[in-house]
């Protein structure tokens, strides 16, 4: 009951406050879209959203790639602290296998296309990474294992690649006497594509490994005597 009252009170306050804020809005002073359009030719890409993501506000994107990596690092550390049983993920469903073998090439193609299209149309590293990750998840559900993912070092290198390439390109600009992430105009387009490729791979792998790093279904919850080991 108290919960309900608290929830109603919070919702009422927030909705009133937001409605007042939106109604009282005045016309904005700045005109950022015009500035974006004006400087778009310097970025080496022709799609404005990609230009904002990877050039004008590339620093945000860099930190965001770091956020995703942090989530994976934490998930890895938690598995270290609380080891899992053998992973038997995969549904014993022959239909899923059959469909995946049809879908997989198509998904890879779509991912590659989205990545390539990002420079001139809606698309880009995140969309491509998400499609690639979906392909990986389907594969896992179909019970196809990735042997090379069992190798911790290889897994880490690919996970870190996106952020590493991003930081390395930025630092390269810095060492060359420019601002951080201020790409030289001649190479801007290819550098952005390079960063996007690495980021796509890392994002896809990060999403797949987050799925894999949660404890498998068969493992939980622990029986009381095993559970006590983790209770202080």
């Amino acid at each position: 009951m108290i919960r309900l009252l608290a929830a109603l009170f919070a919702c009422l306050t927030v909705s009133v406050v937001l409605v007042v804020a939106i109604i009282n809005r005045s016309l904005p002073e700045g005109n950022l879209p015009a500035q974006v359009a004006e400087r778009l030719p310097e970025t080496g890409v022709s799609h404005a959203v990609t230009a904002v993501l990877l050039d004008f506000r590339s620093y945000d994107t860099l930190l965001e790639v770091a956020v995703l990596l942090v989530a994976v690092v934490v998930a890895m550390a938690l598995r270290e602290a609380q080891p899992d049983g053998p992973d038997r993920m995969g549904l014993a469903n022959p239909l899923l296998r059959a469909v995946v073998s049809w879908l997989l090439p198509l998904m890879l193609l779509v991912a590659a296309y989205l990545l390539w299209a990002g420079s001139s149309m809606p698309g880009g590293a995140f969309q491509a990474g998400a499609v690639l990750a979906a392909a990986g998840v389907l594969l896992r559900l179909a019970g196809v294992g990735f042997n090379w993912m069992e190798h911790p070092m290889r897994l880490r290198v690919v996970l870190a690649a996106g952020l590493a390439v991003f930081v390395a390109v930025g630092t390269g600009c810095l060492i060359a006497g420019r601002a951080f992430l201020d790409y030289p105009p001649k190479f801007a387009g290819s550098l952005i594509l390079f960063i996007e490729c690495a980021v796509t791979l890392s994002i896809a792998l990060a999403l797949v490994s987050l799925l894999q790093l949660a404890p498998p279904q068969e493992d939980g919850p622990l029986l009381p005597e095993r559970r006590r080991r983790f209770r202080k």
Binding site: L63, A66, V67, V70, A71, V73, V74, A77, L78, E80, A81, Q82, R227, F230, R231, K232
Partner: peptide
């Protein structure tokens, strides 16, 4: 970024508490 890192550091021991 700070929040997720801090949460991860708190969870690190992996026990119920």
């Amino acid at each position: 970024l700070l929040g997720l890192t801090a949460v991860g550091l708190v969870a690190l021991s992996g026990n119920a508490q």
